[in-house]
Simulated scan of single mutants.
Amino acid sequence: MRTSKKTKERRKMTAFFKEIEPFRGNGNENEKGQTLENFLEEYDPYKYKNPCVTTDAVIFSCKRKVVDGEWKVLMVKRRNHPSIGWWALPGGFIELHENLEDTARRELTEETGVADLPMEQFAVYGNATRDPRARIITSAYLSVVDEGQVKVQAGDDAADARWMQLHCQTESVKEDGDWKRTIYRLALENKEAELTISAIVEKKERSGLVRETYYKVKESDRIACDHAALIVQAWKLVESRLI
């Protein structure tokens, strides 16, 4: 009797996580009379359609003093769909054995050649329509590096990789009931390539004991997906620490 591919994958999933003692609970069997081992043997992770998980990395660089310096962000040009030919943040899909921060570092290295950076998780984006390939949830990371200390070289899914000068201006701020709406104009420029790409990003926030903050791309000129929103959110976080 042949074992189906799905069954093999399911077995791989249960064998993937060998140390199960911390998950034994009170040690009782469930209502079906299953021990934890029995339950895991029969558990099918493919029973439901699950979202895919990716990471994206916003990597900033500053040549001079941190407060007064010229800030840049590292971007890659997409070699394939979706948003082929547009500029995006380095990132990609998580592998089963990886922690999220390891995925962020691996994808950054594969697409730009930049390695061994400290990574800070700052956001999770999961809008249901953010990617046409599937329901994709991304965990976003940021880091800051001196561009003179790293060598950027495009690889993997990236057709090109470049530092782009960051310009982020506040266009308007409006109070709307409990909500505060801020519009930012983002421009990324590489003078050597005579390239300027841009976007309009809205920040929507509500203060209080429970705070809500959302960043959304309203318009985009050659910046892929919701990456302009990720860049603005990361930049406003870094900027707040420089004041």
Score class of each variant (00 low, 15 high):
V238Y: 07
P118D: 10
I59E: 00
V217L: 12
P22C: 09
D156I: 00
E101A: 12
F23R: 00
S198D: 15
Y214H: 14
D178G: 09
I243D: 03
K180L: 06
K72N: 11
I231A: 04
K151M: 12
K8S: 15
T182E: 10
T54K: 04
M75S: 01
N30C: 08
L209V: 15
T3G: 02
T35N: 15
L237K: 14
T213G: 02
D157V: 01
I200T: 14
Y125K: 13
E31D: 11
P45H: 03
D56F: 13
N80Q: 10
V232Y: 15
L230H: 12
A199M: 07
D226A: 11
F39T: 02
E189S: 12
P118S: 03
D131V: 01
K216W: 02
G208V: 02
V238Q: 11
Q153T: 08
A128F: 14
E21R: 13
K77P: 00
T54M: 09
K6S: 12
I200N: 06
A115C: 05
D102T: 03
T182A: 08
R24I: 14
N38H: 10
E37S: 11
E98V: 01
E212H: 03
I197M: 07
T35L: 13
D68E: 12
L117R: 05
T170H: 04
F122K: 04
E212N: 08
A140R: 03
K236L: 15
Y48V: 08
